[in-house]
């Protein structure tokens, strides 16, 4: 990594985009239709986005600056946004509109960009989770960079911010790639970058003192038409999995052999 030295003279303003999703681990498909039963599901902040918030707060703890949380969606829950504030973010902006229910990456990015332009036009870094817990589309971050016409670094699992530059360690297929770029920039982070702190309940309550503002489409200069998804989701279904319920009998050695055969057969015969 050489003698690259980070100077931290800037106090970066960081915007973190946080999506609220249903808790997919709790999601139960309807026994017949296999459609996920959204009405029973619990909502939470998407895991990757919490990593983004944590990273932003850590940068702030080191270099100063400000952390602004932005969340858009059909029905953004204030309590969950407050959790991000309790983690150490300074202010939050929410855009709730039913038209975002079907939003794809493009529409979401458009909405986020509009909020950012209105609420925090002078930013240095936008941090996002590399994907969302529910859709896993890996779209929002790159599209935001596109809209703002700034560099974009994805799959980051280590980040250093210096004077108008950042240096990022990217997890790529066959190793780690270290890149640097000038600010402003958009960065998407993965789960490995940190362990998000868990704000205590007391902290979450205390975060009520921090500014949290609800914006409307009108406030940010958007119309419903701007948010029409480019792709249409026809149906969402759970994969039906079933155990094979095979029972092997015999001595331990034989059993092991039989089991191994099965596994090999299942993997397509490759040993």
């Amino acid at each position: 990594m050489g003698t690259y030295r980070m100077m931290s003279r800037t106090m970066p303003d960081i915007v973190v985009c946080v999506k609220q999703t249903v808790d997919v681990y709790q999601l139960k498909p309807h026994p017949e239709t296999l459609a996920p039963q959204l009405s029973q599901a619990q909502w939470k902040n998407s895991d990757f986005d919490l990593n983004a918030v944590e990273e932003a707060v850590r940068i702030k703890e080191k270099s100063g600056g400000k952390v602004v949380v932005v969340s858009v969606g059909p029905e953004v829950k204030q309590l969950l946004v407050r959790e991000c504030l309790a983690m150490g973010a300074d202010e939050a902006y929410i855009l709730s509109d039913p038209s975002l229910a079907q939003a794809d990456g493009a529409a979401t990015a458009k909405a986020l960009a509009a909020v950012i332009k209105t609420a925090s036009p002078k930013w240095d870094i936008i941090l996002c989770g590399e994907a969302s817990l529910d859709q896993n589309a890996y779209q929002t971050g790159p599209r935001l960079a596109e809209i703002f016409n700034v560099p974009h670094v994805s799959y980051v699992n280590k980040l250093e911010v210096g004077d108008r530059v950042l240096k990022a360690w990217r997890a790529v297929e066959d190793g780690v790639e270290v890149v640097s770029c000038s600010l402003p920039a958009v960065v998407t982070v993965g789960l490995e970058i940190n362990t998000p702190r868990l704000p205590s309940l007391l902290m979450i309550r205390a975060a009520q003192k921090k500014p949290l503002k609800e914006l409307s489409l009108n406030d940010v200069g958007l119309t419903k038409d701007d948010l029409m998804p480019r792709a249409e989701t026809l149906e969402v279904k759970a994969l039906k999995t079933e155990r094979r319920r095979q029972v092997f009998e015999g001595k331990v050695e034989e059993l092991a052999e039989k089991l191994a055969e099965r596994i090999i057969a299942h993997m397509g015969g490759r040993r």
Partner: peptide
């Protein structure tokens, strides 16, 4: 705990 900088397992339990 008030500060919430806990490791993965403690965070998960809470």
């Amino acid at each position: 705990t008030l500060e919430g900088k806990l490791d993965k397992r403690k965070t998960a339990m809470l």
